[in-house]
């Protein structure tokens, strides 16, 4: 005992210090290991994550129309563009854009393959505050956001209004000629 006190006085590491640190470490790991399941249980569950991809049958969508597919609980625009809409989108590649991007780059599939010009797959959420834009309205006949008046063109690019970015492209791949998988 006297020896231990003496050592501590000298500032040396004693066996007691080691025991304190070791016990503290075990307790800290124990607390973390106990807390983690209670924290992690709030993350998306396996069945929720299983819903993270959605298949869409394109054959049911006539030219000039779009559907809203649900992906991860959020709507996705799947738009079957007309040749005029495609031409307008491609022509405006060089227009004065807020968030410049070429139409072809907005069609690229998740695996890097080029997409098909008639199918545009976008997340249906205005990049301003997350409202859902309405179909084929606004000066560019793309989308129009009723909340604060953002106007998107037929490529989903922001053309006027408060939104900072183009509508985000949803990650998708063609699984065959008439089916896509989103996510």
């Amino acid at each position: 005992m006297a020896e231990a006190a003496h050592s501590a006085h000298e500032g040396d590491t004693t066996r007691r210090d080691f025991i304190y640190i070791a016990a503290g470490s075990v307790a800290a790991v124990g607390v973390a290991a106990t807390a983690w399941p209670f924290i992690d249980q709030m993350n998306p569950a396996a069945d929720t994550r299983a819903l993270s991809t959605t298949e869409v049958d394109l054959s049911a969508i006539p030219e000039g129309q779009q559907i809203k597919a649900m992906w991860q609980g959020k709507p996705v625009f799947v738009r079957h563009r007309t040749p005029e809409e495609i031409a307008a989108a491609q022509r405006d590649d060089y227009a004065n854009l807020k968030d410049p991007q070429h139409d072809a780059d907005r069609l690229v599939q998740e695996d890097g393959q080029p997409g098909k010009a008639e199918w545009l797959i976008l997340q249906a959420s205005c990049t301003h505050l997350g409202c859902i834009p309405t179909f084929a309205e606004g000066a560019y006949h793309g989308w129009f956001c009723p909340c604060h008046g953002s106007v998107y063109d037929t490529s989903g690019r922001i053309r006027s209004g408060p939104a900072p970015k183009n509508l985000y492209v949803a990650p998708y791949v063609f699984t065959n000629d008439t089916t896509i998988r989103i996510g």
């Binding site: 924290i39 709030m42 993350n43 998306p44 569950a45 929720t48 993270s52 991860q72 609980g73 959020k74």
Partner: peptide, 13 residues
């Protein structure tokens, strides 16, 4: 955000 909502959007969880 996903941790709080328990999914990728506001939903059942």
């Amino acid at each position: 955000k996903n941790w709080l909502s328990g999914g990728f959007s506001i939903d059942q969880p």
